[in-house]
Design a protein around this nucleic acid. Structure first.
Length: 157
DNA sequence: GCCAACGTTGGC
DNA sequence: GCCAACGTTGGC
């Protein structure tokens, strides 16, 4: 089992939104970056654990966890002209963009802020902490996942 | 194929 | 709101 971090702007879609969905699941559509797509396609497998991270907010933070419940499949929003994620290069015959489906697992007792992560020696190699890192789907080491889960007030398992 | 210009991301 | 960093685009 691998571990990942997925960014989302809570104004668009938050961990709370995920929790309120029927079945507490959601398709993670709208990823329009090749490296992120390739992580979903080549790396993510059923049961992998996700850190859900809220970006573009006053206090950016990891707020909880989720699990992959469906592996990469075509992202239909790409060929929907009405979607903000529309990309005419992608068609049902030749999909360019992919999505996974995730299910809510836990909400941290308290958010683990970016500043807090920067202060933890055990997290210093996380891509998230690198200057200018914008990748919205990133691999996370099991140790890093455990540290963050513990900071958030949740047993690491 | 190079690379400058441009648009976007996202912390601060 | 600023702006650094990055990915993408398009002229050549």
């Amino acid at each position: 089992m691998r571990h990942w971090l997925m960014k989302t702007e809570p104004g668009e879609f938050s961990l709370d939104d995920l929790k309120r969905r029927p079945g507490r699941t959601a398709g993670w559509d709208g990823v329009r970056n090749y490296e992120a797509r390739n992580h979903m396609r080549d790396g993510m497998r059923l049961g992998d654990r996700i850190l859900v991270y809220h970006s573009s907010v006053k206090v950016p933070a990891a707020v909880g966890t989720a699990i992959i419940v469906r592996e990469a499949h075509p992202d239909a929003s790409a060929w929907d002209p009405a979607s903000p994620y529309h990309d005419p290069r992608s068609t049902p015959k030749r999909p360019v963009w992919l999505m996974v489906e995730i299910r809510f697992e836990s909400e941290f007792a308290r958010p683990v802020t970016l500043a807090e992560m920067r202060a933890m020696p055990g997290l210093k190699d996380m891509p998230l902490l690198r200057r200018g890192m914008r990748l919205s789907v990133q691999p996370v080491k099991p140790e890093e996942f455990a540290i963050i889960a513990r900071l958030g007030g949740r047993a690491a398992e």
